[in-house]
Computed example of a mutant assay.
Amino acid sequence: MPNQPKTPVSRFRIDAELWQAFGDAVPDDTDRSDVLRRYVAYYCRRPGAKPPERPPAGPWSEPSTD
């Protein structure tokens, strides 16, 4: 099958405002998927896995009051 991805797409539910804040907090040189994959590997105690570095506090740190 052409273009068979190495990993399947995984889905989960998350509050839209929190997902947006997470996207804002992720550094420009990476993406949310990379951060999540690294965290899951760390959470499962895979050899050599380290948690992703957290960014300093920013506007995404507090829930919106809209």
Rank of each mutant, 00 (worst) to 15 (best):
M1L: 07
N3M: 08
N3V: 01
P5C: 06
P5Q: 09
P5F: 05
K6D: 13
T7G: 01
P8L: 11
P8G: 08
P8M: 04
P8C: 07
V9G: 08
V9M: 15
S10K: 09
F12S: 11
F12A: 15
F12I: 05
R13K: 09
R13D: 11
I14E: 09
I14G: 04
A16L: 07
E17N: 08
L18P: 00
L18S: 02
W19M: 11
W19E: 11
Q20V: 07
A21T: 01
F22R: 04
F22M: 14
G23H: 10
G23I: 09
D24P: 00
D24L: 12
A25K: 00
A25F: 06
A25Q: 07
V26R: 02
P27L: 08
P27I: 09
D28E: 15
D28N: 15
D29Q: 15
D29H: 08
T30C: 04
D31Y: 03
D31M: 02
D31C: 13
D31P: 01
R32S: 12
R32Y: 01
D34N: 03
R37V: 04
R37A: 06
R38D: 12
Y39G: 02
V40C: 10
A41H: 06
Y43W: 13
Y43I: 01
C44S: 05
R45S: 13
R45E: 13
R46P: 00
P47V: 01
P47I: 00
G48T: 03
G48K: 02
A49E: 01
A49P: 06
K50G: 06
K50R: 15
K50E: 15
P51E: 13
P52L: 05
R54N: 09
P55E: 07
G58V: 04
G58E: 08
G58A: 08
G58R: 05
G58P: 01
P59E: 12
W60I: 01
W60F: 15
S61F: 11
S61V: 08
E62I: 10
E62L: 11
P63N: 02
P63S: 05
S64R: 15
S64D: 12
T65M: 12
T65R: 13
T65N: 13
T65I: 05
D66L: 09
D66E: 15
